[in-house]
Amino acid sequence: MDEEYDVIVLGTGLTECILSGIMSVNGKKVLHMDRNPYYGGESSSITPLEELYKRFQLLEGPPESMGRGRDWNVDLIPKFLMANGQLVKMLLYTEVTRYLDFKVVEGSFVYKGGKIYKVPSTETEALASNLMGMFEKRRFRKFLVFVANFDENDPKTFEGVDPQTTSMRDVYRKFDLGQDVIDFTGHALALYRTDDYLDQPCLETVNRIKLYSESLARYGKSPYLYPLYGLGELPQGFARLSAIYGGTYMLNKPVDDIIMENGKVVGVKSEGEVARCKQLICDPSYIPDRVRKAGQVIRIICILSHPIKNTNDANSCQIIIPQNQVNRKSDIYVCMISYAHNVAAQGKYIAIASTTVETTDPEKEVEPALELLEPIDQKFVAISDLYEPIDDGCESQVFCSCSYDATTHFETTCNDIKDIYKRMAGTAFDFENMKRKQNDVFGEAEQ
C-alpha cells in the first residue's frame, strides 16, 4: 500500500465507483478503499435476508415463511433508472452494461384523492384515464405537443414562451391547466419533490418532461429500469471497470487518518501504512468535519406477500404521492420490486416508501404510502441524515459526494458526479471521457 497514487477513493457507493471508473479509464492511477467488507456503502443491496434483520437490530431473524435468505437482495436506497437518463448513458458509454441485466418497471402510478391511478404512457391511455376530465385532456394534450416540439435552440418552437424568464406557473396558465393536472405534471412527469420549481424559469421543467417522455418511448410500460439482483450491482459494475483499467481495490480496510500538508491532501493512513495521493474522493462518512447536515430522509422497507392493490398485479412499480394531495411540502414515493428481479424469495415483494422528513414524527409522514401497502409482513425503518460538503474541495483537493436524496431516480446523483468531475479535472464533464479506450493495455477482449 505504500505507494504513490493520482487519486484515492474512500467508500464504494455508486458515486465513488463511477468516479473511480472514469478516473481509471482516463489513465489515472487509482486506489479504492472501503472500511466495509462489502461494496456499495449507503447504496448497497443487503443479502442474505438475515443480514438485513441484523442491521435493523431485529434479533429474532426472519421467519421460515420468508423463504431462503440467499434469495434476497434488499436495497437500502430505493431508486430506478430513467431509461433515457444520465446513468444509463454512463453505463452505455463505459460498457458496464455487459455486467448487468435490466428489466423495465411495469408501471408508474400517481395518488389522487386517496386512490392510485396509472400515469398514462400512451395517448390512448391518456384519453381513457380517469385522472382528468374530457376538456382537461384536450388542454393537457396541447401542452404535451408543445413540450414535444420544444427545442431550446429554435425560438420558432417557443410559442411566445421565453425559456429563460417565463416561469412554469405562467406556462401552466397559458395552457389553462387545472391544479390536479399541474400536480401530476410537476411531480409524476417532471419528478420534482416540491413546488419550488413553479416560480423558476420553465426551461428545466420542460426538459425534465421531455426526458420522461423519451424514456417512456424506449420501452413503453414506464420510463424506469431496474437491474436484476438489486442496485448493489451498479457500484460493483463500475468497480470492475476501474479494476480492468488498473485500479487497486481494498475492502474491509480501516481508514485511520487523512493526511494533510499546508491545507492540501497528501495521503491516507491505514493500519500503520500511508498511501500518498494528489486528490481524494470520499463519501460524507469519511470526513464528518468537512460536511454539513442538509436534512433527513425516511425510508421504510416493507416486505409483502402480495402485489400492491390497484396496480394490475404489477411485479414492479412506482407510486408518487404528490405533496398537495397530503398537505406536505415534499412528495412521498413508493418503489416496489419483487422475486421477478431476483431480489426476493418466490411470491414475495419489496416495497420501499420514502420521503424528505418535515416533522418530528417521520413515520407518521409516510402513513399515506403504508396504507396502500397493507397487509405488511415486516417493516424496517431507516431515518438517514443527508450531508453535503461545506466547500468545493478545490483548495484541499478533498472531494466529497452528497448523500443520496429522496428522489426515486439517479439524475441528482449523476449531477453530483459531473460536478465533482468538473472540480477535479478543471474541465466540464463530457460523456466521451467515459469511453473505454480501444486496444489499450487494460481493455477487455470482446465477449
Rank of each mutant, 00 (worst) to 15 (best):
Arg290Leu: 09
Asp430Tyr: 00
Gly247Ala: 12
Glu446Gly: 10
Met82Ala: 03
Gly220Arg: 03
Pro63Ser: 11
Leu92Lys: 13
Asn262His: 08
Asn73Glu: 13
Pro48Thr: 00
Val291Ser: 12
Gln323Tyr: 09
Tyr111Glu: 13
Val9Trp: 06
Glu261Val: 07
Cys394Glu: 02
Asn312Tyr: 13
Pro223Ser: 11
Gln378Arg: 12
Lys329Ile: 09
Tyr5His: 01
Leu177Pro: 02
Gln179Trp: 14
Leu189Trp: 15
Asp419Thr: 09
Ser222Thr: 04
Gly21Val: 06
Lys269Thr: 12
Glu51Tyr: 14
Asn252Pro: 15
Gly114Glu: 10
Lys364Ala: 11
Arg240Ala: 03
Gly133Glu: 13
Lys118Val: 01
Lys118Phe: 02
Ala275Pro: 02
Thr355Ala: 10
Lys278His: 15
Tyr286Phe: 12
Ala428Thr: 11
Ala243Phe: 01
Val147Ile: 08
Ser384Arg: 10
Arg290Asn: 12
Asp257Ser: 15
Lys264His: 15
Pro78Phe: 13
Glu60Lys: 07
Ala188Thr: 10
Glu125Thr: 02
Gln179Pro: 12
Leu92Ser: 15
Lys54Glu: 12
Glu3Leu: 14
Lys418Asp: 05
Tyr172Arg: 03
Leu31Arg: 00
Cys335Asp: 11
Asn439Leu: 13
Leu76Gln: 15
Leu372Trp: 04
Asp180Glu: 13
Ala344Gly: 04
Tyr286Trp: 15
Asp256Ile: 14
Asp257Ala: 15
Glu125Trp: 13
Ser167Trp: 14
Leu127Pro: 06
Phe150Ser: 05
Ile383Thr: 10
Asn36Ser: 08
Ala425Gly: 11
Leu234Ser: 01
Asn415His: 11
Gln86Trp: 04
Ile308Thr: 05
Ile417Val: 10
Tyr117Ala: 04
Asp180Lys: 01
Ala275Val: 09
Ala314Pro: 03
Phe146Asn: 15
Phe109Gly: 04
Val357Asp: 10
Cys317Met: 10
Gly178Asn: 01
Asp430Ser: 11
Arg328Thr: 00
Lys89Asn: 07
Glu261Gln: 07
Arg276Pro: 10
Ser129Tyr: 00
Asn327Lys: 01
Thr165Ser: 12
Tyr349Ile: 14
Lys221Val: 09
Leu216Gln: 04
Ala445Tyr: 11
Gly347Thr: 02
Ile116Leu: 12
Ala217Phe: 13
Leu280Pro: 02
Pro307Ser: 09
Tyr286Val: 04
Leu52Ile: 04
Asp154His: 05
Asn324Lys: 00
Lys115Arg: 12
Met336Asn: 14
Lys348Trp: 14
Tyr111Ile: 05
Tyr99His: 06
Leu373Gly: 13
Lys418Arg: 10
Leu52Thr: 03
Asp196Glu: 00
Asp196Cys: 07
Glu159Ala: 12
Ser338Cys: 13
Asn73Ser: 12
Glu64Asp: 08
